[in-house]
Design a protein around this nucleic acid. Structure first.
Lengths: 240, 240
DNA sequence: TAGTGGTCTAGACCACTAC
DNA sequence: TAGTGGTCTAGACCACTAT
């Protein structure tokens, strides 16, 4: 006679653990029981438990830390990010009273790529500034932006990089320019390794990749940027 | 004397495989070599190779199929989805000449939850229709929408479900109603298991969760919906 | 030193696909 | 039937954390 085998597979262990986290039996910021303990509890070899925990890690429920245990993740409260023609990131954070900073981590004067050239309607041989900006909110890195500006529109831009606060601050203070966002495209993707590292997030947290065109009030395109923002930390809002 | 051990860990195998896919040595829609072959190639036990492939799977490079092999994923070309006050999904697909359908998979008349009640400005005791709609484009499931409508605004709505084509078709044809989108919030998240299954995607493909308010042209809120759309298959566009 | 998670070995058997 | 990936066992040793 066949014995009814206990159907404890790694999938079921994972499901059980998730349920317990959901129901609060295991609490956020606490640890789930150790692998060893779980082996005893489910009466399975360690490999099974590890497979289950790998699943949980993947789905974003826990973060294992060597020598300590697997910590249950806090579900983050996302920050509203209002998309409109007039608002910039800093601007947005400011209005919500969220502590924020920007950091210029890299810049160059270079030849535009095809994309940039057409988007910014550049003539042949025109150069661009290309900046890499990391934005922080509540001291945490929240987004990375690659922004491209026609050199001709921003004479001596690099002079203003020394005490870099915000790009739009520079636009306003030194070029008397109130930029206008004309278009934003977005897409949900998984981060590149380099971006994930920079943002201090695991590779499996989705990010929103946002591509924007920004114009001079007279309609001339003056900025093209691609931001990668933490999808779990932002709730973007568009009003019509 | 210590022998310089070959540092082939699962991480390095994964990295090597990714590089080969990137460079086109292994081509999209083809398979990577079998686990057995890779074991021989890297001179490691199967467990190591499987760990590496698990990583690739996770990062979205391959999809293993039992009995066949691990297929290299095609990077999908996303469909543009224009967000504006006037456009609906069907409408959007129509204009781009993309073959599309909608399917009403579930509906009920029920009491609204707190969220729905406040969003739709419902009085006490007012009932709502709650529909579950799956939208297809190019024969593939692309999004799942939970939509809530005040019952009082749509008398005998269920009469029109028999040959369901599109919600907005019903609005237009039977209620002479040209709906207006007033607000959209979006966020990048990983799908729930049930949604992933319905969309036929692995759990690690990010989706855009989009919450919208839709009004009568006179400003009265008539629809509140939450869509989960495939993040990898859509490029959402907002114009200002 | 004890306990945690991370890596790794060397197998076995099963389920599915292709021929 | 042979080849593929999926599940599972039963260990070993290492790296890190806490005490």
């Amino acid at each position: 006679m066949k014995q009814a085998k206990t159907v404890t597979s790694h999938l079921q262990i994972a499901e059980d653990l998730i349920t317990k986290i959901r129901l609060g039996e295991y609490q956020a910021n606490e640890k789930i029981p150790s692998e060893h303990t779980l082996c005893q509890k489910y009466q399975v070899p360690r490999h099974m438990v590890r497979q289950a925990i790998a699943r949980l890690t993947n789905l974003g429920w826990v973060t294992p830390v060597q020598g300590k245990g697997s910590y249950i993740k806090q579900k983050p409260k996302p920050i509203p990010y209002i998309l409109s023609a007039e608002t910039s990131y800093s601007n947005n954070m400011q209005e919500q009273g969220i502590d924020h900073t920007s950091k210029l981590i890299d810049w160059e004067i270079t030849n535009p790529n095809q994309e940039e050239k057409s988007k910014l309607k550049l003539g042949n041989g025109e150069k661009v500034y290309r900046l890499e900006i990391v934005r922080f909110a509540r001291k945490q890195p929240m987004s990375i932006t690659t922004t491209t500006l026609p050199k001709v529109e921003f004479p001596n831009l690099e002079k203003h990089f020394i005490h870099f606060k915000s790009l739009y601050r520079i636009f306003l203070d030194h070029y008397q320019l109130q930029p206008v966002r004309s278009m934003t495209k977005f897409q949900a993707i998984l981060p590149l390794l380099s971006d994930a590292e920079m943002l201090g997030i695991p590779e499996n947290i989705p990010i929103i990749q946002m591509e924007s065109m920004v114009n001079h009030p007279n309609g001339v395109p003056i900025e093209y940027n691609i931001s990668r923002i933490r999808g779990d930390m932002h709730q973007c809002v568009v009003e019509f």
